[in-house]
Simulated scan of single mutants.
Amino acid sequence: MSRIGIFGGSFDPVHNTHLALAAAALQHLRLDELRWVPTGHPWHKASKPADAAHRVAMLKLALAGEPRYTIDELELHRSGPSYTIDTVRWLQASQPELPGQHNEWFLVIGQDQYEKFNTWHGWRELLDRLTLAVANRAGAAPQAPPALQAVPHRVEVVPLPPSDMAATDIRSRLAQGLPIDMLVPPQVARYIAQNALYRK
């Protein structure tokens, strides 16, 4: 049996809190593999992310050296909105299982996503297909919304040091010409500077 995590997001850009959560998930969930899935067209976001090629390039730089990390670009090549349920169906169908063995799947999400998980497309099927791995960033136990509390589901809490970092803040700092060296890996900061990303 393989233990496989799925970590989706715009990664616009990938930053240190993303990496801290991924490392915590590897350790706490004892994952054999963590699939990073950059989104194509997030259905819940009005703004358009940076070009996919740049986001993937930054991910490759940030994830180098950890063999359990893989990048799956399927959402970047899918037309229309990116729904997690479609991604999970495809990933599970494409992952071979040996006779008598069953892969265990985890969806790595933040507390804010867990609190509104019942608004996700196909959320009930997602609960049937995998375990939710919820980042515990504030030190308090993640709280499910009432609709989710009424539905049996599997949850693993992933301990994570408190952090207020968000990609929107990093993009705002870059637009103002402020440094981001402590917020992203050095190789990602260099890539952003070399390609003049997120400037006004």
Rank of each mutant, 00 (worst) to 15 (best):
T168L: 07
R173V: 06
Y114A: 08
L130Q: 05
P152T: 07
S172T: 12
G139K: 00
A175H: 07
D128Q: 15
I180C: 09
W120L: 10
T168E: 12
A167M: 01
P161N: 07
E156L: 10
R129Q: 14
S163C: 06
D112I: 10
V157H: 09
S163P: 00
L160Y: 02
S163W: 00
G110R: 07
T131N: 06
I170H: 00
G139I: 08
P145K: 03
A140L: 14
T131M: 08
A141Q: 15
H121T: 13
R173A: 13
Q113N: 15
P146K: 11
A166R: 11
Y114Q: 09
N118Y: 13
S172R: 15
A166T: 13
L132H: 00
D164T: 11
S163N: 05
T131W: 04
H121K: 14
A147H: 08
G110C: 10
L174E: 01
L178T: 09
R173G: 04
Q113S: 15
G177T: 02
L127K: 02
A167V: 01
A175C: 06
V134G: 00
Q143A: 14
P146Y: 06
F117P: 06
P179L: 06
I170F: 01
L174S: 04
L148F: 02
Q176M: 13
D169P: 07
A135N: 03
